[in-house]
Design a protein around this nucleic acid. Structure first.
Lengths: 197, 197
DNA sequence: GTTAGCATGTAAGGAGTTACATGATTTT
DNA sequence: AAAATCATGTAACTCCTTACATGCTAAC
């Protein structure tokens, strides 16, 4: 288990704020995470089903308050909400930078949940992501050096642009890391910081 | 058919320069396209197989020049090269901005083949890509406006950063488009052009 | 002589998409 | 009353990765 697929984590985080039904989850997910992620229903509903089966969320199919029809089959709108197990699961997930939060997608989801994450973990994730990008940078630079001559102008430009993009993301991370550190110094530092490690 | 999967296009383009064997193709592919694409063998070899079956490439399993062994089974190193059909296919693919070249991945591959693409097609692809990104920009801006209040600081920052990234890519494309246009005016325009700039 | 890297492949499976199929509710 | 949009779901398929399985060749 523990193989937290990214989607279910995002859903857990979303349901922590309020119960939602599938259709709403999809819209928010699409909006919340950058210009990415158009997530299809064919992906979402089976995931919700699995999560119900695992006991992390409960389907509240109350067609409810208005039982005019004998068959009672209005059927639309199934609201999902976190169970206790789901709340636990989310808390555990949020506390550890567990199953690789460094991939592009996983990082975005983790980052969008930073509001519910403690500052130590935030820092760990930001630094992990930074390390990962720095490695990529090295790989590319190395690759470039090895085959420099064989590259036509367009391929070289593509490389340059890709490199630039990653460099900018590293700068972004550096800024965030710095902010995080100064915020920590200011506020919730509980153990004295004297020292070594 | 016609459903040009990206990988096979990249391979066609690569083999147009020289015959290569699978292992080499993979290394180049990994290097050539930005910091992306680590492409596994489990993906590559079946694709090569399909392409052989379709007649676009030929497998030259010559263990050849050195037939000391009676069984002749050295087996390593299968060089692939374009067939006539493959050359045709590549030419057709390169001439049309066919099956959506606007996705992130497809665009990168198409761009890396710009050296073999005529300038009209180059322009069409660059502009198509630009349009696609501008649309995304609109979608995000709209989404942002609609839910502005419900966003915590981190999610908002993620959005902002995503937006910035796309904006930069649009700028990059604008620069390329401009270059492409002025190059066209300068050189391969057969109606004269005494240039200013 | 053993490790590291070159070289080819297959099988199982994950994660998602498209297309389909259905029906309720709101807006025009 | 028609059209748009809300709402849920399934089945088939695509594309890719991981893990496995094999063997050659160069370097240390």
């Amino acid at each position: 288990m523990a193989k937290t697929d990214v989607l279910s984590l995002a859903i857990l985080g979303m349901l922590a704020e309020q119960p939602l039904h599938g259709y709403q989850i999809r819209k928010r997910l699409s909006g919340e995470l950058g210009p990415f992620r158009a997530l299809s229903y064919g992906s979402l509903y089976p995931c919700l089903k699995r999560m119900v089966a695992s006991g992390y969320i409960a389907a509240d199919d109350s067609n409810s308050t208005d039982v005019t029809r004998p068959g009672g089959s209005k059927r639309s709108r199934i609201a999902y909400q976190l169970t206790d197990a789901g709340t636990d699961r989310l808390a555990r997930e949020l506390a550890s930078s567990g199953a690789s939060s460094w991939d592009d997608e996983a990082f975005d989801v983790r980052f969008s949940l930073f509001g519910k994450t403690d500052s130590e973990t935030r820092l760990r994730i930001l630094e992990g992501r930074r390390t990962r990008l720095a490695e990529r940078l090295e790989d590319v630079a190395e690759g470039l050096a090895r085959q420099r001559d064989r590259l036509d102008a367009y391929t070289a430009e593509l490389q340059r642009h890709g490199l630039e993009r990653v460099e900018r993301e590293v700068e972004w991370l550096d800024k965030l890391i710095e902010d995080e550190r100064s915020a920590t110094r200011g506020t919730d530092h509980h153990t004295a910081s004297a020292g070594d490690k």
